[in-house]
Design a binder for these strands. Structure first.
Lengths: 241, 241
DNA sequence: AAAACTTTAAGTAAAAAATACTATAAGTTA
DNA sequence: TAACTTATAGTATTTTTTACTTAAAGTTTT
């Protein structure tokens, strides 16, 4: 089934096969977080087109790979990052968006904790770097547009799904959580109220540990209760910051 | 630029041109509303593959059309419906989803008021019909999956964007609006409280008209204030039912 | 080892919003 | 004119949000 059948002729008398000339690509907007700043991961291309330009990790999809797999493969090949939560957010199909032909690209986004992932440029990525989302370089193709829509999607989704936890270490303090949300949503919350709200959701498991190596009273550590979230979700529960 | 250049060879030694064998299609989930029920529009196919099956209005995209235009054209060709608000929601790219070759489809959804649109089957649509979303027939391709995700998207978006108004006539009563939201969200609201909430948003313009032809006290008519919505939106206002 | 300092963490009071309910007004039909 | 239906206004109660205060726990400085 991988080669289009010649059987069908469309109504405009264009042979069916003439429709099968698209390229499909995936592009990944990878959000990272550290020291109160949200960043995205860009690669410096070492291949035409747009050689030497900064771009999103992305590539053409082969005929025998589905979209989700392709997105994961691309990320692994170009950055070494493997096996992370990744979600589709929008597809871009302007006619002139790729100089080599007609390519529709599917945008994916993901969130990773900076410390845990040490991306290494590989394949045709010459170098790789985290950029502050408010201070991006010129980007290849229409990647600026893709990034912008990715940021918009993240800001919206982070409010009603607990995706933010992907950006923190497994064990975290409530202040770290608050700092993260303040960075993501670019706003400030009252500290006592924030912790009251988040704890009342009953989605955090308090640990019998405190943070170490701080020059003040160490805060209690918590971890996210994924099992409970899965249960609550089924009952129509909405996570809401 | 419409034919892929032979210049580039991918790293796996697959000629660049071998990636350009995808078909792209668009499929439209058109929501309609009347008599307290939410429906979607399906066509009965009069062309292979899946001839005689019910399916979403959709078609392959040609090389010289962008996605949004293609979605609008498809809808116009198959149903006669033209010039309506339409929004992309997800892309589907499983390898075996189309028997004629590798086709990635981009899902669009729209909301229309039943009365205003009298869809007529044309092109290769044999017939056309509204189906209750809770009582759908067997569908061609993976259209069941597309519909399900479309419904899920609608239910989510309708809560924080005033898309619901697309489903009502320009002039409507508050009870009609409430009935619509109750049908969309499959729930019940307290009448006085619903009207208080919606009116306090200051997004409705009260008209000096009342509904006619009813055997009881006629309700006041309102219309949606789009200009004001655009203004509020810029200030970070979130519509929230 | 006490004082100063910083941050966590618990608590409380006021304001706002959501919810539940009651009453009245405006029209239609018998 | 009375009975009826639905729109619309109003009120009281509960819950949630927001703003602010205070105490506790640890570190650093003197």
């Amino acid at each position: 089934m991988n080669s289009p059948s010649n059987f069908f002729i469309s109504e405009n008398n264009v042979p069916f096969i003439d429709y099968f000339k698209f390229g499909i690509s995936v592009d990944c907007v990878i959000f990272g977080y550290s020291k109160g700043r949200v960043r995205i991961l860009l690669i410096e291309r070492d291949a035409d087109p747009f050689k030497n330009s900064w771009a999103l990790p992305g590539d053409l999809v082969s005929l025998n790979s589905n979209l989700d797999d392709a997105a994961n493969d691309v990320l692994k090949n170009l950055t070494g990052i493997d096996n992370i939560f990744m979600e589709q957010f929008y597809s871009f199909g302007e006619m002139d968006r790729h100089p080599a032909g007609r390519v529709v690209t599917v945008g994916y986004y993901s969130l990773v904790e900076n410390k845990n992932y040490n991306p290494v440029a590989s394949s045709w990525a010459k170098s790789i770097q985290w950029f502050d989302i408010y201070n991006l370089p010129e980007l290849a193709f229409d990647h600026k547009k893709i990034v912008m829509r990715g940021i918009q999607t993240l800001k919206r989704r982070v409010r009603y799904r607990p995706v933010g936890f992907e950006l923190l270490p497994v064990k975290f303090t409530l202040t770290e959580l608050q700092d993260l949300y303040e960075a993501l949503l670019d706003s400030k919350f009252d500290k006592p109220n924030f912790r009251k709200k988040i704890l009342s959701m009953d989605l955090l498991i308090p640990l019998n540990e405190t943070q170490g190596n701080v020059s003040h009273r160490p805060a209690k550590l918590y971890k996210f209760d994924e099992k409970r979230y899965e249960l609550l979700k089924d009952d129509g529960f909405v996570f809401d910051i």
